[in-house]
Design a protein around this nucleic acid. Structure first.
Lengths: 338, 338
DNA sequence: TTGTACGCGTTATCAG
DNA sequence: CTGATAACGCGTACAA
C-alpha cells in the first residue's frame, strides 16, 4: 500500500523540543542572527534529532520565492532523448546552480502544450526564473513570460522582439565559416542540409551558408531541410543527392543530422571526403565517433547555458543586467570529413 | 534592473471579479463540481481575463501534495553531461509524466552532497515522490527516504536492503551473455573492462562475465576497472593490454567505455574484431557510431525509467504495488565488433 | 534576545 | 449549490 508518510516534523515541534518559541527556532534555523548561543544549540540539537527540514511550500508562501528555476525545452520527447545538445544545456545550467541553493525544474513540453499548460505552470509562481532553450517561432513564451514579469533568459535568439534577454552564438557566422572552408578546399558544388526554419539557429546557419556562396559566386540552390535529428538528416541528404547528383560538398546544420547524412553517403557509395566533403555543426561528442570524424563548427552549448544561468542569477539577485544579448563567436574544428 | 513582477492575481481577485465567493471560485477552478453553470462561466471568464494561475505553494500547503516528483542523479556534472544513459532515463520518465500533471524536478547531486543537501531537499516535502538512478553503495538515499516515508523507486538495484522498490535489468545475465558470445566465437583469452564496483551494475556485469569464463574453464583474471566514461574506458583498456598482451577478446561494461577502448586498440594497431573482439554494454546510440559498430548487450534504459515512473505513480495513487523488483531480461545485439 | 500575533493564497469543512 | 471560517507551516514586524 501507499507508504505511510509519517508527518514531517514542523517548526512548532522543533521549538517545543528545544524549549523556545517558534520564532526563535525560525531565526536559529535561518541565519541564526540575534539568538543566544544556548537557544541556538538547543534548536540545532532538536533539528538534528527530529530530522527537521523546513516545508518549502509554507516558506514560499511567505517569502514569495520558490528557490527553484525552470529549464524549458519545448520539444517532443524523442528529440530531448536523442539530442546531446540538451544534455549539454542541462549540464551547463546545473553547474551554475550547484553553487546556489536553487533547484532545477526540467520542463519538457510538447510544442502543442507550451501555450497552455507550460505557460500556466510558469506563471503560477512555481519558479523564480526561467531559462528557455530550443525556442520556436510560434512559441508564446517570450511574450507571455515578459508580460507576467517572470525573469527569463533564452538560449538562442527568440523571434519575438521586446525586452528579451538571450545568450547565443553567431550562427550566421558559423554557417559562413563552414561554407567558406568548403570553398577554400576547392569544392565546386556545395549543398546544405538546413535545420528547421522556425528556429533562429536553423535560419541563421542557412543564411550564412548562402551568403558565403554568393560571395564566392556560386549557386546556393541545393537545399534540403531536416529537423536536427539523425533520421531527418538522412532523409534530407538522400533527397538532396537525388536532386543534385553533382554535389561534391555538404554543409549539414547539426552533427546529428550529419551523422545521418554520412550513412546515406556511405550507402550511395560516395566516399567522404574524397567524393563529397561534409561539414557539420555543434561539435558534440557524436562528431568524433562518426566515420570519418566530422569537421564541424563549435556550438558552445555548455558555455551558453552556463552564461544564461549566470545572467538569470544576477536577475534574481536584483542586479542590473544589460539587455544586450551575449553572443559567442563560432569556431571551426577540422577533422577528416572535409 | 530586476523585472518588476506584477503581483500574480489571487483567487480572491478572481472571485470578486466573478461576483462569487472564494470558495465557489475555488470549486469552479478545480473540477467544477457542485457549481452552477452561471457561476462556472463567470469564474472561467474572470480567470481568463486576469490570467489567473493558482499559487502552487499555497495549494501544496493545504493539499499536502506538490504535484512534482524528483529524478535524483547522484553523479558529478561531467558524467551527466556525457552519458546518454541519463538522457534515456530523463526521457523515459518524462514520457510517463506527460500523461499526468506532475512536473519533473531534476536533482543532480555531487556524491558528496547527497547525504546532506539532497536528503534535506527530498525530505522537505518538496516532491511527492522520487526516482533514483545511478545509485552508489555508500549513498544513504535508500534508508533516508524510506525512513522519511517518501515514496521512492530506484532504477538499478540499490545496496541497502529493506523495503526498497526497484526496476533493473539482469546485469549478471547480461555479463554472462557477453562472455558466452566471445567463448562461442572461439576466443581463447578474454579480458574485461569492468564498471565501478560501488554500483550494482558494475558488480553484476563483472560477476556474470566471471561465471561464464569459469563455466568454460577459462581464466577470469584479466580485469581492469573503469568509471563508465569514455576516457576511463580508454585508460583501463591500455592498462589491460599492457598487462595481458595475449588478449584476443574484451568485454567492456558500457558502450561509452568501449568506444574509448576501441580508440586504444586502434592506436595499438590491433584490428577489431580480427585481433581483438569487443563486446560493449548498453546499446545506446554510441554503439552504432563507433568503428566498427559495437556488438553489445541491450540495456533497456528508457523502458526501465518508464516502468519506474509508472510504479511511482501507482504508489502515489495509493495503489497496492508489490515490493518485488521488476527485472528486465538482457539481450545481445551482434554487430561488427565481435 | 525573545515571544506574540498576523498574513501569505489556497483548499476543506460545515452550516445555510 | 453557496459562502463563512478554519486550517496548512512558516517568516517577521512589533512589542516586551
Amino acid at each position: 500500500m501507499s507508504a505511510t508518510r509519517r508527518a514531517a516534523p514542523t517548526l512548532e515541534q522543533v521549538a517545543e523540543r528545544a524549549g523556545v518559541s517558534r520564532s526563535t527556532a525560525s531565526r536559529a534555523i535561518n541565519g541564526g542572527l540575534r539568538v543566544s548561543p544556548e537557544a541556538q544549540a538547543a534548536v540545532d540539537a532538536a533539528v538534528l534529532e527530529l530530522g527537521f527540514a523546513p516545508n518549502r511550500a509554507a516558506r514560499s508562501l511567505v517569502t514569495r520565492r520558490t528557490d527553484s528555476i525552470a529549464l524549458v525545452i519545448p520539444e517532443p520527447d524523442e528529440r530531448v532523448l536523442s539530442d546531446p545538445f540538451f544534455a549539454g544545456t542541462i549540464n551547463g545550467l546545473g553547474s551554475v546552480l550547484h553553487e546556489t541553493d536553487l533547484q532545477l525544474v526540467l520542463v519538457m513540453a510538447r510544442p502543442a502544450d507550451v501555450a497552455t499548460r507550460t505557460v500556466r505552470y510558469l506563471r503560477g509562481g512555481h519558479v523564480d526564473g526561467v531559462v528557455v532553450v530550443s525556442h520556436h517561432r510560434d512559441d508564446v513564451l517570450a511574450t507571455e513570460l515578459e508580460q507576467a514579469g517572470v525573469p527569463t533568459v533564452f538560449v538562442g535568439r527568440p523571434f519575438q522582439h521586446g525586452h528579451v534577454r538571450y545568450v547565443d552564438v553567431d550562427n550566421t557566422a558559423g554557417g559562413r565559416m563552414a561554407a567558406e572552408h568548403l570553398v577554400r578546399a576547392g569544392r565546386a558544388r556545395i549543398g546544405t542540409v538546413a535545420g528547421p526554419q522556425d528556429m533562429s539557429a536553423g535560419l541563421d546557419r542557412l543564411a550564412g551558408w548562402s551568403a558565403a556562396l554568393a560571395d564566392a559566386g556560386m549557386a546556393a540552390d541545393a537545399v534540403a531541410y531536416g529537423d536536427f535529428t539523425s533520421a531527418g538528416g538522412a532523409r534530407a541528404a538522400s533527397r538532396l543527392l537525388a536532386e543534385h547528383p553533382d554535389l561534391d560538398a555538404l554543409f549539414v546544420a547539426s552533427d546529428l543530422m550529419a551523422a545521418g547524412a554520412l550513412g546515406v553517403l556511405a550507402d550511395a557509395g560516395r566516399r567522404v571526403p574524397d567524393d563529397v566533403a561534409v561539414v557539420g555543426y555543434d561539435n558534440l561528442a557524436v562528431a568524433t565517433s562518426t566515420t570519418p570524424a566530422l569537421t564541424t563548427v563549435v556550438n558552445p552549448v555548455v558555455a551558453m547555458a552556463r552564461t544564461a544561468g549566470g545572467l538569470l542569477l544576477d536577475l534574481l539577485a536584483g542586479e542590473a543586467v544589460p539587455e544586450a544579448p551575449v553572443v559567442f563567436a563560432p569556431e571551426l574544428v577540422v577533422r577528416a570529413s572535409a
